[in-house]
Simulated assay, not measured.
Amino acid sequence: MSKRINITTGSPWEDKVGYSRAVQVGNIIEVSGTTATDKEGNIVGVNDLYLQTKTIIETVKNVLEDMGSSLKHVVRTRIYTTDISRWEEIGKAHGEFFSTIKPATAMVEISRLVNPDMLVEIEFTAITE
């Protein structure tokens, strides 16, 4: 069996809920659902789906690079939003990072996230070389 590596960020929620920011097994990296929050836990881009999406992808970019991977190794994204009618704002930010990488993806509307100011959450699957 491949070695399992859990990556944490030190968020108090990781221990309370029992999750890791990312888990690597073999050459597969699964990144937990990520929202647009800063290091102090404040929501970035309240009512701005484009900025929230961009912030999420930049956060995950840093996590992947710390793990020896990168956005170019993302093979799947799963996008959850509380307002699918504004999908183009999400798509614009996603496309700025992934227009040439083109991972498999899904975008679905959900009723809400943990905080009402959170409008989008994204999960990522990546590989290492």
Rank of each mutant, 00 (worst) to 15 (best):
T9K: 01
T9S: 08
T9V: 05
T9L: 02
T9Y: 00
T9D: 07
S11T: 02
S11H: 08
S11N: 10
P12M: 10
P12G: 06
W13G: 03
E14C: 07
D15G: 13
D15M: 11
D15F: 08
K16Q: 11
K16E: 10
K16W: 07
V17H: 07
G18E: 06
G18L: 09
Y19H: 11
S20L: 05
R21W: 10
R21F: 12
A22G: 11
A22P: 15
V23N: 03
Q24G: 09
V25E: 15
V25A: 12
V25M: 13
V25R: 15
G26C: 09
G26M: 09
N27Q: 12
I28E: 15
E30H: 12
V31H: 06
S32D: 00
S32L: 05
G33A: 00
G33T: 04
T34Q: 07
T34F: 08
T34P: 11
T34L: 10
T35M: 01
A36Y: 02
A36N: 08
A36G: 04
T37C: 08
T37L: 13
T37N: 02
E40K: 03
E40Y: 01
E40F: 02
E40M: 02
G41L: 10
N42G: 03
N42L: 07
N42K: 11
N42Q: 06
I43V: 14
I43F: 00
I43H: 00
V44D: 01
V44S: 01
V44A: 08
G45S: 12
G45R: 06
G45C: 10
V46Y: 08
N47D: 15
N47I: 07
L49I: 07
L49P: 04
L49N: 14
L49M: 15
Y50N: 11
Y50V: 04
Y50H: 15
L51V: 00
Q52K: 01
Q52S: 05
T53K: 04
T53P: 09
